[in-house]
Amino acid sequence: MEFSHILFLGLAALAVVAAFNVILQRNPIYSAIGLIVVLCSLAALFLTLSAQFIAAMQIIVYAGAIMVLFVFVIMLLNVRAEETRIDKQKYLKWLAAPLFLALLAEVMAVVRYVDLTPQPLPSANGAAAPQDVLGTVENIANGMFTNYLIPFEAASVLILMAIVGSMLLARRERKEDVERIEKALVAQLEEEKFEEEVAA
């Protein structure tokens, strides 16, 4: 029993318990908090694998940004408990079990048959990086901006498009609406002018 085993078991147990909490809670805010705990314990697991950058990103992006939005929405809509349960699709419940078993079998197969020894990332000058600095910022940046530059840039363009698209959706004004409002305003102005003339 090594120290890393204790750490792993503790963090893994925390992640699993919190994940069950996400599913089983009826109150969405408890589920959200459970999900945050899952994400944080996953980040800690990444740290034990010396994947420091991934761990930090996990917390900053998922726990720090995305989940904040979830919590915000839950709180602003003031969803106190799960209001309606979806009863229409009862058969889905029976589909879930075989799908879960398939997923489990897949994971087992991966663990059993795939070579999981960490492969050294190719660094900029082609030399293999030593094991313990695999997850450092420098190493990931080297990979990202040399060997995997095109996928990286493609992903960033995709995200940019998503941002622009969401802004467009949020501020789209229909032409007819604008024209209707303008007409109404012009009519109102003319009416006021007319009234002023009458008063004069």
Binding site: I36, C40, A56, G64
Partner: peptide
Amino acid sequence: MNVGLLYVFAMTSLGIY
């Protein structure tokens, strides 16, 4: 930590909750 600064930002962002 190799990611010390990111770690600080990550932790401070958790305080919002």
